[in-house]
């Protein structure tokens, strides 16, 4: 939701990034204020997922130009774990399996690390158990998931719920959800989206990276951005997503090229 008095959370200016020497982001600009929900859409290979990973600091991606400011700090100076502790959360498109590590143990360590960063008390295993079970209800998750290894043998939908559970625990300032809707059936999509909606408030912001309009029926964005060739080429309101759903992406590209000719 757009608020009058909201503060700027994230400013991305002319961001360039490469992976294995190939430039994927080519001058990305984006400003996000607290309370807002942004959707980033675009065809395969347009750089959406790269953008989320670069914000989170994935070591395979190299920033080759531009700047990113997060709550007044230079985000690019921070290590991935420092970004997370500062309140940047990435919901993974393909959550990683960690055999042998109990989900409860992993969640508690993550939670306590972030709590410590915020100057708050840690929770012991018993306190945490009560706390996490409460949060799991939000996502209609079976408590059995606490005893299983992190994401190991989880179905696609279970993994995505586990991601949103982590978002609920860590209460990030900026949550980037990368293709959270992929692999979800309609019931799971409703539950996951419901969870995200409950977590959205006027102090945080959410970025939804998605291919399809479907998710946006449940989580209504304030802004819809279309990415192509490593940057945002068009921005509109929620109705833009409907238009994309109806007409595909090709016309956006054509329109961009036409504008470029006019401006030239």
């Amino acid at each position: 939701m757009i608020y009058q008095d909201s503060k700027t959370l994230l400013t991305v200016r002319k961001l360039h990034a490469t992976v294995n020497g190939i430039e994927i982001l080519k001058g990305m600009d984006l400003t996000i204020k607290s309370g807002e929900v942004h959707a980033i859409m675009g065809p395969n290979g347009s750089g959406k997922s790269t953008f989320s990973k670069v914000l989170a600091g994935h070591p395979s991606y190299e920033v080759s130009g531009g700047e990113v400011e997060f709550e007044g700090r230079n985000l690019l100076d921070l290590k991935p774990e420092e970004r997370a502790r500062a309140g940047v959360f990435l919901g993974f498109q393909y959550p990683i399996e960690i055999p042998g590590v109990a989900n409860s143990q992993f969640l508690r360590l993550a939670y306590n690390t972030v709590q410590t960063e915020r100057g708050k008390d840690e929770l012991d295993p018993l306190e945490f158990d009560d706390f996490v079970r409460e949060k799991m209800k939000l996502l209609e998750m079976n408590p059995d998931f606490l005893d299983r290894s992190v994401n190991e043998g989880f179905s696609g939908g279970e993994k995505k719920r586990n991601e949103i559970l982590q978002m609920a625990l860590l209460e990030p300032r900026l949550a980037i959800l990368d293709e959270t809707d992929s692999g979800l059936d309609i019931d799971a999509l409703r539950i996951v989206a419901g969870g995200v909606n409950q977590l959205a408030n006027k102090d945080n912001a959410i970025v939804l990276v998605t291919h399809y309009q479907r998710l946006l029926n449940y989580i209504v964005p304030d802004y819809v951005h279309v990415m192509e060739s490593g940057r945002i080429v068009k921005t509109g309101g929620k109705e833009l997503a409907l238009e994309l759903e109806a007409r595909g992406y090709d016309w956006v590209g054509a329109e961009v090229k036409a504008n470029a000719r006019v401006n030239a």
Partner: peptide
């Protein structure tokens, strides 16, 4: 795996 942990602050 390490990036996944890092992204959760670990």
């Amino acid at each position: 795996q390490l990036f996944y942990f890092a992204q959760r602050g670990i």
